[in-house]
Design a protein around this nucleic acid. Structure first.
Lengths: 229, 229
DNA sequence: ATATAACGTGTATTTTTTACACTAAGTAAT
DNA sequence: ATTACTTAGTGTAAAAAATACACGTTATAT
């Protein structure tokens, strides 16, 4: 495969679908473009892969450039390769998703010049997107729906300490449906990857819930086994 | 994302992991390379994506060029993008898998010049592969293991009419373990995608088994629901 | 007729999933 | 301090699914 000479005229880009959870809403990071094509449109954060970096490395770099975050677990989920997906040339885009906890503290840091701003936007309330980004995003959503059913991914969206009700909210938001509280707790606790803390929520109106921590050691053992929600 | 000018110096290739089942063994289609690099090595069939075709179209074209087959369900499963995966330039490879029934009749048709020959080789008995193809193949195998647990894909490997024992063999080969005959039959029949025929096997020593057909209509309805083996 | 080898079938047990509703605890207001 | 309010937290019974397990049946070959 791969004769040399011809064919070396494609570009490869990364697009990131960054899911964020602020404690109540599921959000996605979008940028507002400052350049043609699609100037002033919202788009997924992404950029071209450099010649001297792997696509995985590139995804990490781009994530960092756009959010200041590093060491986030990102997973590649699909390569988009329609002929006319980019109006200025043949660009294959490799899509990654990541899940992030959002806190007030998180500053949306260094925006490359091609973006006017970056913003976390509620999935329930998305604008029209540039390129085929709506399609890329839809496929990312499908993907995490499938994955969250089998692996307890939700914890990447949650703060270090969280309540079971918060975990359930994440599941309900991603799966798009209500779950039974007692059954959900039975199930999620049965995996034994949550450690109950002595601590309770503070500063809430009404009864404070017990806080839990995610036990990464046990989680890693679980990996490989598939589970169902 | 994607400034123009720089970056348009990548190539994109397709590599296909074609699983085949001849009634008893699980095989993979390999070619023997006739060109540098890796001249005389075995490799996955693949080729460069053309400028005027999508990666999906390209995968179909390449499959056809190498096997003469068309209208095969192929699924993209990963993009491989390490910097030095190809010694002659920066090539991103998008991998697809497909599952094919093998019969004596199947001629391994038109081999492009870059291949000395193409051959179905037992998965249990693979040679050393060119490039990162062993890695690509491993990931493909993992993928179908996971998928076959959730969807009755196995039928793509089987002839039009088949016995339940053959279906079970396919599952056992892919999953790499023995399954209980009665439980397997209970499960596979419970999906109601198999139609029992009046017909029995012919030309076998010993008792002939009942033949079944795959009901594609019902299968398509099932799609979307996930199931477990 | 007999031996052979694969076919085809059932049940009991355990595990998992589902459905379903109330009391307890803490906060806020009066 | 009483009351009203809101969320936390818990158990059980029924149904469904998964598992473990063994033998009589049938077509073929000799």
């Amino acid at each position: 495969m791969t004769e040399i000479t011809p064919g070396f005229d494609f570009a490869v880009s990364i697009d990131c679908v960054l899911f964020g959870f602020d404690g109540s809403e599921l959000k996605i990071l979008l940028i507002e473009r400052n350049e043609e094509p699609f100037k002033d449109w919202w788009a997924l954060p992404g950029n071209l892969v450099n010649k001297d970096e792997s696509v995985d490395q590139s995804a990490q770099r781009i994530l960092k450039e756009l959010t200041g975050l590093s060491d986030i677990y990102m997973e590649q989920y699909y390569a988009f390769g329609e002929v006319n997906r980019h109006p200025q040339g043949r660009v294959i885009s490799v899509a990654y998703y990541a899940m992030l906890r959002l806190g007030g503290e998180k500053p949306l840091k260094p925006l490359s010049s091609y973006a006017k701003k970056a913003q976390w936007i509620n999935v329930a309330d998305l604008p029209k997107l540039a390129f085929d980004h709506q399609h890329i995003l839809n496929k990312g959503l499908e993907k995490i729906k499938r994955r969250i059913k089998h692996l307890p991914l939700a914890f990447e969206l949650l703060p270090e300490k969280f309540t079971l009700t918060q975990v359930q909210s994440v599941y309900e938001l991603i799966l798009g449906k209500k779950l039974d509280k007692r059954n959900f707790r039975k199930k999620i606790l049965s995996f034994k990857v949550l450690k109950e803390l002595e601590e309770k929520q503070r500063g809430v109106s009404f009864r404070a819930a017990t806080l839990y921590k995610f036990d990464k050691r046990k989680y890693n053992k679980l990996f490989g086994k598939e589970i169902s929600f």
